[in-house]
């Protein structure tokens, strides 16, 4: 199972309100028709963190091995999408993709 905090994009000490807000924002951005897997992951993450009790239970009882994507998301989170450089586009158009 993916780290629900990372799926929702909330801090480790997020409270009920912050978690609900992140969940609502997430499902608005990724409704099931747009990204069903992401939607499901958001639902599962919200269920795992919805209440203080659930968050403690997750901390205590989740023994699933971490996924590399969790390590990646945690250590080097996604930033704002950027426009690629003209050089990069030029290289691709020249067929250079080494």
């Amino acid at each position: 199972m993916r780290d629900p905090y990372l799926v929702l994009g909330v801090a480790d000490d997020a409270d009920d309100a912050q978690i609900e807000r992140a969940y609502r924002q997430g499902i608005k951005t990724y409704p099931p028709e747009r990204d069903p897997e992401r939607f499901q992951a958001l639902r599962a993450a919200y269920e795992a963190l919805r209440t203080r009790r659930a968050r403690l239970a997750h901390r205590l009882f989740d023994s699933s091995e971490p996924e590399p994507i969790d390590i990646l998301d945690r250590a080097a989170p996604l930033g704002t999408p950027q426009r690629p450089s003209a050089d990069l586009i030029a290289a691709l158009l020249r067929g250079e993709d080494g």
Partner: peptide, 26 residues
């Protein structure tokens, strides 16, 4: 993926340089 295609996609997805290098390490 080839390196350039990946880097272009990473830019569009918002992957900063440190994320790309960590991904390469993983």
């Amino acid at each position: 993926l080839g390196r350039n295609r990946m880097r272009l996609a990473c830019s569009l997805r918002g992957w900063p340089a440190e994320r790309i290098s960590l991904w390469e390490e993983i």
